[in-house]
Structure formats: C-alpha cells, structure tokens
C-alpha cells in the first residue's frame, strides 16, 4: 500500500533497460522482457494484464501489453524488434507476480530478436538509475 514512500528499488546490474521502464535480458538472440521494480512500484498493485499472442511481430516502440492497476492503465513497449516466442500466461491468473517478482516470475514475454545490435542501444544499469532519479 505504501509504494512510492521512502522505498529503495532493486535494479539488477546484469540487465538492460529502457526509459519507459522495461528491463531486457538478452541471451542467444532472445530478449526476455518485463517491467522494473521502480515501474511496478509506481503502478501500485497490478490487477490485470493484457498479453500479446505468440507469433505476433513487434517493432521497437510498439505497445504490446497493457498493465492495469485499480486506478491506472499503462502500456508496455517493445524495447527491440522481434517476434513473440513466449508469453507468460501465469500473469492472466496471477497479475500480482509483476509486483512480487518483477525480474523473475513477473516476466512478460520473450522476443526472438530481429536485429541483435539493437540491444546495444538500451540503457545499462547506471544510466537507468540516473534516469529514475532525474
């Protein structure tokens, strides 16, 4: 209930980030995507998640999922171009995973990246922390 008030946020060093508060974990040309601890805290309790379907093709910047809290709606944007190869259907029944474990069980999709070089343009840990503190 007390999100936003004097709470430190976890920001793992090994991940890449976007200014829109997605995290990206790139392995073997696949990008696993979720939202950051900071973002879930701002959103407050996630109550509903609208997910994309497998095989959907996304361009960088496309809104591919919708996260709803009781009083807000937020889009999640594709950090890179890619095809959706895995969707976390657990979120349909347990949207709270986004709040409870944003970097683990709260992941949203895995994309098969179309252009691996796009990963280099993402923010690193330090840049993202600066961005959230700005």
């Amino acid at each position: 209930m007390l999100g936003g008030f004097n709470v430190g946020h976890e920001t793992p060093k090994k991940l890449a980030y976007t200014k829109e508060h997605e995290w990206v974990n790139v392995e073997d040309g696949k990008a696993r995507i979720g939202i950051t601890d900071f973002a879930q805290d701002q959103l407050t309790d996630v109550v509903y998640v609208e997910l994309p379907t497998e095989d959907e093709t996304l361009s960088q910047g496309d809104a591919f999922a919708v996260l709803e809290s009781v009083k807000s709606v937020s889009d999640v944007y594709a950090p890179v171009d890619g095809t959706v190869v895995q969707v976390n259907h657990e979120l349909e029944d347990s949207p709270e995973l986004i709040n409870d474990d944003p970097y683990g069980d709260g992941w949203i999709v895995v994309l098969d990246m179309h252009d691996a070089s796009q990963a280099e343009d993402l923010l690193d840990h330090e840049e993202y922390v600066d961005h959230t503190e700005a």
């Binding site: 509903y48 709803e68 809290s69 009781v70 009083k71 807000s72 709606v73």
Partner: peptide, 12 residues
C-alpha cells in the same frame, strides 16, 4: 474495473 472508464482511460 474502473480502468475501462473515462476518468482513467480517457479517449480509449
């Protein structure tokens, strides 16, 4: 389910 409504989703 107020996120469907105008005061949150506005034009959508």
């Amino acid at each position: 389910l107020q996120t469907r409504e105008q005061h949150i989703r506005r034009s959508r």
